[in-house]
């Protein structure tokens, strides 16, 4: 009886720790460390970036890269690469990510709203040099376009980003 209780506890601990890990990965918020470069200005209100993402297989890595691109536009700004991208992030106030944690957890969940603002460019074909296998993980570099104007507008409507006219 005692042995089965210990086994149950072990299984519970493994499952919860896996659950926490997958939640962090799913939300994309854990992936602070990624490379992103500006590739130029796209159509009205879009910017073209090359972004990298990790994952257990190429598809997961590409999805993570898309999350990273939107994450960079909102929280980091894009400071390297070609001119034309927004150097400043949409959210500049420190602690905004924590303040609107619930919103962004849902926003960056798998299949979340972030997908409305990011599109794979170059017909999904990926340069072999941008496909790196690191141990059991894949690191994929993809070129995506991010609709930063639409993203800003929607975040303004949600009350997360201040409008330029706020207070006037």
């Amino acid at each position: 009886m005692k042995k089965s209780n210990t086994l149950c506890l072990a299984i519970f601990l493994i499952l919860t720790s896996y659950g926490m890990l997958s939640l962090a990965q799913k939300n994309g918020n854990a992936s602070y460390n990624f490379d992103i470069q500006c590739m130029g200005t796209g159509m009205d209100g879009t910017q073209l970036v090359k972004v990298w993402g990790f994952g257990k297989n190429p598809n997961v890595a590409i999805e993570q890269a898309k999350k990273n691109a939107v994450y960079a536009v909102i929280f980091k700004g894009i400071t390297t690469g070609e001119p034309g991208c927004m150097n400043r992030p949409l959210l500049t106030a420190s602690g905004s990510e924590q303040q609107f944690g619930d919103y962004f957890n849902a926003f960056f969940a798998d299949g979340g709203k972030y997908l409305d603002y990011v599109n794979i460019s170059s017909d999904g074909s990926i340069d072999p040099n941008d496909r790196i296998k690191v141990g059991r993980q894949y690191n994929m570099g993809v070129i995506v376009s991010v609709s930063h104007t639409q993203l800003r507008k929607d975040l303004e409507t949600a009350g997360i980003v201040k409008k330029l006219t706020d207070g006037f």
Binding site: G84, M86, N87, T92, K162, L164, D166
Partner: peptide
């Protein structure tokens, strides 16, 4: 293209001034 590239950055610094 230059306007598209720069105006959002300009507005971002204008927002800092308004803040």
């Amino acid at each position: 293209e230059a306007v598209l590239s720069h105006l959002d950055n300009f507005n971002s610094s204008l927002q800092t001034h308004f803040d």
